[in-house]
Design a protein around this nucleic acid. Structure first.
Lengths: 197, 197
DNA sequence: GTATCTATACCGACTGGTTGGTATGGTGAC
DNA sequence: GTCACCATACCAACCAGTCGGTATAGATAC
């Protein structure tokens, strides 16, 4: 028993990265702080990761895997109508929100905003995670697209992520997660308009 | 002559902050780097600013003033129809884009994403700059709102900023400013739908 | 059974360099 | 003189990363 609490050091470091980087940013999160949060020593850190950047790349992949599994198992796939599934995804994203912005905002979006110009490997890893998540919406959007509509499913999938990422920034600026809910409402209205033809 | 090049040290430091923070982020931009970029010494830095954080607050205000003056003087206010003015603003934002993301993305959005939890003064300064810019759109949106429409001008003004901020994050993730243009296209379509009633 | 070998996981003191910030001194305008 | 402005030298704390070493477990040999 107890295996859920006693994770291996590598996984604890990845979780510490998600925890601290979402709250403090990448540069402000030191290797020592990551080790303290994970309850491991510096020797252990550099045994598992060649560098701080390598941990960041692995953490982005870890973020993609854990959130990917969570979304794959979520109930919004249930409706028979593809347009209803898209809107159920939007409502599911809204239901995930709470006032602790450090726990409900996007790790990849936060990380890439800070490292896009200086750390190409981190930029690529974050870009891939966001692209892959957006891609999971394309099939439902394509099926929900009225004949003759002037929009592309992949472009709308990116727009959904754009609004979410922007809402996270705006929420951090206003200090309240309520901002995100408001913006998701506008996004929902736009999608309804697109899909009802 | 030559006054445009020989700005005072304080202004050069503020411009250095805009230049470096937009490309490297807040924590990764050191006081020494700011001084080197501005061509001043550390003594001068701490003569004009009590701390690095104080420079950040002043830089956010400087960003609000310079961009505010630029938008106030922009041609998108010309159309007689308020809905046309809103769409002209959107098109103006699109026209400002180019491939150098470090020069066409938002200083306040970049800064607040990194400092919202750890530097309350910076968070407040960035939040105010973004709020003030969004507020400049409210009058035109209110005038363009069809009678009986179910949207609030201030909320839509925030949505416009949300999409722009999100598009900047997505552009950094994909590595191309073309992403921003695509997202602004969706935003334009949503606004047309809202304003034509 | 046990001695030996090998690989993985982990530890924490240490290093060279950087950080934000300070102390102090100079210099030109009024 | 004095005061705003700037320069230089300096500091303690902190940074990412290194290094010599230990602990443990499984495989192989005899």
């Amino acid at each position: 028993m107890d295996t859920a609490v006693t994770l291996d050091a590598r996984t604890r470091l990845l979780q510490a990265a998600l925890h601290l980087v979402r709250r403090q940013g990448w540069t402000a999160t030191s290797v020592d702080a990551l080790c303290a949060d994970a309850g491991v020593t510096k020797g252990s850190f550099f045994h598992h990761f060649r560098s701080k950047e390598a941990l960041g790349v692995a953490a982005a992949a870890h973020w993609g895997e854990t959130t990917g599994a969570m979304f794959a198992a979520a109930p919004y796939h249930a409706p028979a109508d593809p347009a209803a599934r898209v809107l159920a995804y939007i409502d599911f994203r809204a239901a995930l929100l709470h006032e602790d912005l450090g726990a409900c905002t996007c790790f990849a979006g936060t990380l890439v905003q800070e490292t896009w110009a200086s750390h190409p490997a981190l930029r690529a890893a974050c870009g891939e995670v966001i692209r892959a998540h957006a891609a999971t919406l394309e099939a439902d959007l394509a099926a929900a697209r009225p004949p003759g509509a002037h929009w592309a499913p992949d472009s709308v999938a990116r727009f959904i992520q754009t609004v979410l990422q922007g809402a996270f920034v705006m929420a951090k600026a206003t200090g309240s997660a309520e901002t995100i809910r408001e913006q998701i409402g506008h996004l929902r209205g736009y999608l309804v308009g697109l899909m009802e033809g």
